[in-house]
Design a binder for these strands. Structure first.
Lengths: 119, 119
DNA sequence: TAAATATATGAACGTCTGTTCATATATTTA
DNA sequence: TAAATATATGAACAGACGTTCATATATTTA
């Protein structure tokens, strides 16, 4: 009884038609989260620099630290995040690990992002 | 004296040629930050849902709360962030404020992002 | 096999972020 | 003008995040 009308919205201003239609075509929870996760990964200055550097060349962790200005430990931590998001791949050559972009999605996203910035 | 050799890197593994070339073409600090800021803005599930809903229709705050599942207050806070990043615009009609996408950059970025997700 | 080197990782710490709750503002309606 | 409605905003709080420092792992070299 307490929640007899729980399915009725107490807000008056809703445009039912619009809401109904949007709801029917709405992005689902998982997709929204996956999308947010990629953008979240791209939403950090250090990672932006790492990815931008890798757009120019395959580089080892030391090199990445040098060009990004972050410590090697910080870079290593961030590279793990980029690996988990399947944004970079790596190959080991002795003691050294070389990182590179996994595909060209990053390039495309950067270009689109910069287009938004430059306006 | 203390920092007599401060410009010499104590790391041995650096590939000088690569680093030099990458440094010369590196993204600058401000651009990296601006880029990170957009992606950071897109890196939240609630904001993803709001933007996705607005891709489908112009909507008021109440409607956005209804379709996103967030409270009206939370939506209002997030809309401010989207406004600041110039991702959405709004028009007032009496008591009601209608929001819509400012341009189609969001659409493009979403599409690219989803392409990365679906692989 | 021991030392050196390159990278990775866990814990700790301060900062940032998103939500909630209370309240303020703006507009309409009675 | 007072009450109601739609939205906005500030403070507070919990949780997430990025860095640092110490340490572990992997590989090479002596």
């Amino acid at each position: 009884m307490e929640f007899e009308f729980e399915d009725r919205c107490d807000v008056q201003c809703i445009h039912e038609e619009n809401v109904k239609e949007v709801r029917a075509n709405m992005i689902n929870e998982d997709t929204a989260r996956a999308l947010a996760d990629i953008f979240k990964t791209l939403g950090d200055t250090t990672r932006i620099k790492l990815l931008f550097a890798l757009m120019l060349n395959e580089l080892c962790v030391c090199d990445l630290a040098a060009v990004s200005g972050a410590s090697e430990s910080a870079v290593s931590h961030q590279l793990r995040i980029l690996r988990n998001q399947k944004l970079v791949k790596y190959r080991r050559a002795g003691k050294i690990v070389y990182y590179s972009l996994l595909d060209d999605h990053v390039q495309t996203l950067f270009t689109q992002g910069l287009e938004h910035v430059n306006e």
